[in-house]
């Protein structure tokens, strides 16, 4: 391959990358922003993920570009997390500490109706990582269960279970935020 041919190939590669992958930069940043809860960390992770995506672009075969990119973003985030807290295993979540006490609660629709943007935001931020990510992908990115399974590289059953438990926790957290605000107001 001559110098000019390889230069032309590089330019074509950049053009293809800009057309197929770059449009999903917002999704990439959004996921990183919610998972890291920091805009500067989110920028670093999104940027690193874009660079890795470009390096691996030859392995992308025209499937769902957003799912492909988000998989890379998620893996980049997990590497970042491991660097932050080497002792903590981010993958497992202790069931016993978070048993569902839902049956004791009445439906929280009243609290939900009155929940503000801030309540909802804070509640999501307080979700453990593996529930936060599936809730985000489902509600904000509007990915299907199958797409979520692809990004998280886990079975469909796990996805369904995490969405179910994630929403259950989210409901309690929002209600908690609302109750907390109410106490502050009247207390």
């Amino acid at each position: 391959m001559t110098q000019m041919e390889s230069t032309a190939n590089s330019r074509e590669k950049i053009a293809r990358f800009e057309a197929l992958v770059l449009p999903h930069l917002d999704s990439a940043y959004n996921l990183a922003r919610w998972m890291t809860r920091s805009s500067s960390d989110a920028e670093d992770i999104a940027q690193e993920a874009m660079m890795r995506a470009f390096r691996f672009f030859d392995t992308f075969h025209g499937e769902d570009a957003r799912v492909w990119l988000l998989t890379i973003v998620r893996n980049t985030y997990l590497t970042w997390v491991r660097r932050q807290l080497p002792q903590q295993n981010s993958a497992e979540f202790d069931e016993r500490l978070h048993t569902d006490i839902e049956s004791a609660l009445t439906p929280e629709s009243e609290f939900l109706r009155q929940a503000t943007v801030e309540h909802v935001r804070r509640a999501i931020e307080n979700l453990p990582a593996e529930f936060r990510e599936v809730i985000l992908m489902r509600e904000v990115e509007q990915l299907s269960y199958k797409q979520i399974a692809a990004v998280t590289q886990s079975p469909l059953g796990t996805v369904m279970s995490r969405i179910s438990r994630g929403r259950s926790m989210l409901r309690q957290l929002i209600a908690g935020e609302r109750r907390h605000a109410e106490v502050k107001h009247h207390g």
Partner: peptide
């Protein structure tokens, strides 16, 4: 209840833009 939750969450602008 979960339908209400979803509607509440979807109504809030949660998406960050790059």
């Amino acid at each position: 209840s979960y339908r209400a939750l979803r509607e509440r969450v979807l109504a809030v602008d949660l998406r960050y833009e790059a």
